[in-house]
Design a protein around this nucleic acid. Structure first.
Length: 419
RNA sequence: GGAGAGGUGACCGAGCUGGCUUAAGGUGCACGCCUGCUAAGCGUGUGUAGGUCAAAAGCCUACCGAGGGUUCGAAUCCCUCCCUCUCCGCCA
């Protein structure tokens, strides 16, 4: 969330951020509520000070066995007043907090302003698109020919969007995950975490999925728990309500998890094969850094994600999301879009974002800087990578004229493990 | 799920028959003094958030797992919930 003090003194910047991000936050109501809250807090403090002072007098008189009835009756009135203000204060505090949670993060100045994805900025292209001496098939045909997927039975046991990877398909998926994890561990210096796939409401609010995106989440109502839409949620929240030392920073984590998304509102859009799923696998990178380091860390993380695509020899492009396509919590985001050689389009396989202190404020993650000052650290995360569309790109780029699939050389060691 | 014990400031730990404790004492940390260095010793300081102020100092308010209640006054009494540990039950 944004610092209320910042909002108070820079309402225009915040208002512009809300418009640029196509959000519907009610800034005026928030400012009015904040004003009211401060007034009530002042009155409360005054009365409390009086009560504390007179309580001392009462205590003294009682100890000296003197009569304190005058003070007692005076204080019973004050106590009643305090009770009324207290409950009004609780109410307004809740209102301010709730409204504050609906204010989006402010885009970084370098982010292009634009209404929707059409105005995203393609920064550069990398790698060569494979040329075929034959008519390439799309990933679903390749997968079917090689018995790697069973989508109908996945739909039967769970619903559409819940894929079954079969035989060599399952093994390939597992190899991709393991390869990416080991790459980040060994070449990029991340620390691996295995985390819960189910989190509570507070955790979902900490990273910014709630309250806005509740309908996109699978919810276990009996326990008020949510299936994670990304490992970002549990991993970023591991330090919630904690104070780290500057000596602990930076920290870099990588975690593999399945991800669960209801994808409400996107039915019928790009649904063929593995393009859009309710459950998919993803390796996620998360960083905790000092504020001064976050911009450099974003570039580093982008490079970390790109290294995976390079290792597979895939063609891709780097896109800087415009304000309208930026997520609620993000300050700046790069997407990596891999070239699907068979279907002839770019598919998003990674999203690398700097959240500034936005998530750290929500989740209350702080650190002590070298001067001993308490500050909110900055958080970042990036997919490294999400597997389904990577699988699409691999199937389409590595298909052979005879319909078989070549295994990318970097995956071979993971496909050939012996027991 | 059942029974018991417990959750206090960076850490340890007292307070828990309600008011000279709006948190003792210790450790750690910071600064100073002292000793040739280190250690020891001595002294001072030591949280977070909000408010007041041009700013700092100072002062005020809140915070003893969370929320609510009793009371003029709650770390201390009562209720609900959460978490940790031990034992029992169930179970991969």
């Amino acid at each position: 969330m944004i610092d209320i003090k910042y909002i108070r003194s820079n309402p225009d910047i915040v208002r512009k951020a809300i418009v640029d991000k196509n959000e519907k936050a009610d800034l005026d109501t928030l400012l009015a509520a904040d004003e009211k809250r401060r007034k009530l807090q002042y009155d409360f403090d005054q009365l409390k000070a009086q009560q504390n002072a007179v309580s001392q007098v009462i205590a003294q008189k009682k100890r000296a066995k003197e009569d304190a009835n005058a003070e007692l009756s005076e204080m019973s009135k004050v106590a009643e007043e305090i009770k009324i203000i207290q409950s009004a204060l609780n109410e307004i505090n809740y209102e301010v907090e709730s409204l504050l949670l609906t204010i989006p993060n402010i885009p970084h100045p370098s982010v292009p302003v634009g209404r929707d994805e059409a105005l995203n900025e393609v920064i550069r292209h990398e790698g060569e698109a494979r040329k075929f001496g034959f008519e390439p098939k799309d990933h679903l045909d390749v997968a079917t020919a090689n018995e790697m997927l069973d989508l109908p039975r996945g739909a039967k046991i769970s619903g559409s969007g819940f894929p079954i990877y079969t035989g060599i398909g399952a093994k390939l998926e597992r190899a991709i995950i393991t390869f990416m994890l080991e790459y980040h561990l060994q070449k990029h210096g991340y620390r691996e975490l295995m985390v819960p796939l189910v989190v509570n409401r507070k955790t979902m609010t900490g990273t910014g999925q709630l309250p806005k995106l509740e309908e996109d989440m699978y919810h276990i109502s009996e326990d008020d728990l949510f299936l994670i839409p990304t490992a970002e949620v549990p991993v970023t929240n591991i330090y919630s309500d904690e104070v780290l030392s500057f000596k602990d920073l930076p920290q870099k984590f990588v975690a593999y998890t399945p991800c669960f998304r209801r994808e409400a509102g996107s039915y019928g859009k790009d649904t063929r094969g593995l393009q859009r799923l309710h459950q998919f696998n993803k390796v996620e990178m998360v960083r905790f850094v000092e504020p001064e380091q976050s911009e450099a860390a974003l570039e580093e993380m982008l490079a970390d994600a790109e290294d995976i695509l390079k290792a597979f020899g895939l063609h891709y492009r780097v896109v800087s999301l415009c304000t309208g396509d930026l997520s609620f919590a993000s300050q700046k985001t790069y997407d990596l879009e891999v070239w699907a050689a068979g279907s002839g389009k770019y598919l998003e396989v990674s999203s690398v974002s700097n959240f500034g202190e936005f998530q750290a404020r929500r989740a209350n993650i702080r650190y002590k800087d070298p001067e001993g000052k308490m500050r909110h650290l900055h958080t970042l995360n990036g997919s490294g990578l999400a597997t389904p569309r990577l699988m699409i790109a691999i199937l389409e780029s590595y298909q052979q004229a005879d319909g078989s699939l070549e295994i990318p050389s970097v995956l071979k060691p993971f496909m050939e493990l012996r027991v």
